[in-house]
């Protein structure tokens, strides 16, 4: 156990569910997976959450500090034409549990709090999601184009941008 008592080194699946429900109540809902014979899900190493945009940064901080989710595996953007979505995958090394948090963002106000101050690893993922989708991560130290050349103005991964082969 680490020095201050409230960090749970190895939170089990229902520990996390109960603690997060107690902490964030209605804002975070848990999605049960309907798959039957996937080994990882049956052995309880996956957890799917849907969180609101405002509560995301505190939820991330809570998971990082209290429940020992040390690594932000990936930050993915998804463009559902009528709204945008950001998906976070957080990993806990001790129980190798992966938490998937999806956050919906309305199309007109594409802003979300950046988690790069909690996990340094998410820094480049957020920059990449910004340059490919146009989702602005507030509080990101250096939100610039990373992969595409500096002269690009458009956001290539949006459904509105058509590839050469498409229509």
């Amino acid at each position: 156990m680490s020095e201050d008592a409230n960090i749970i080194e190895k939170p089990s699946r229902d520990d996390i569910v109960s603690l997060v429900k107690a902490e964030f109540g209605g804002k975070v809902e848990f999605i049960e997976s309907t798959k039957k014979n996937i080994k990882a899900i049956n052995e309880g190493r996956r957890l799917f959450m849907k969180a609101d945009r405002e509560v995301l940064h505190d939820l991330a901080k809570y998971l990082h500090d209290k429940l020992n989710f040390e690594q932000a595996s990936s930050v993915a953007g998804v463009d559902w034409v009528d709204h945008m979505q950001v998906v976070y995958h957080l990993t806990n090394y001790c129980t190798s549990m992966v938490v998937e948090i999806t956050v919906d963002i309305p199309n007109d106000d594409l802003h979300i709090a950046s988690v790069s101050d909690i996990w340094e690893g998410a820094n480049w993922h957020e920059r990449e999601t910004y340059e490919l989708f146009g989702i602005v991560f507030d509080g990101h130290p250096k939100l610039e184009r990373l992969l595409t050349p500096k002269s690009y103005e458009f956001f290539p991964f949006r459904k509105s941008y058509k590839l050469r082969g498409q229509e």
Binding site: T148, P149, P156, Y161, L163, R164, G165, Q166
Partner: peptide, 8 residues
């Protein structure tokens, strides 16, 4: 090559 439809 295989990236015939890429923008970059």
């Amino acid at each position: 090559g295989p990236w015939y439809d890429s923008y970059n």
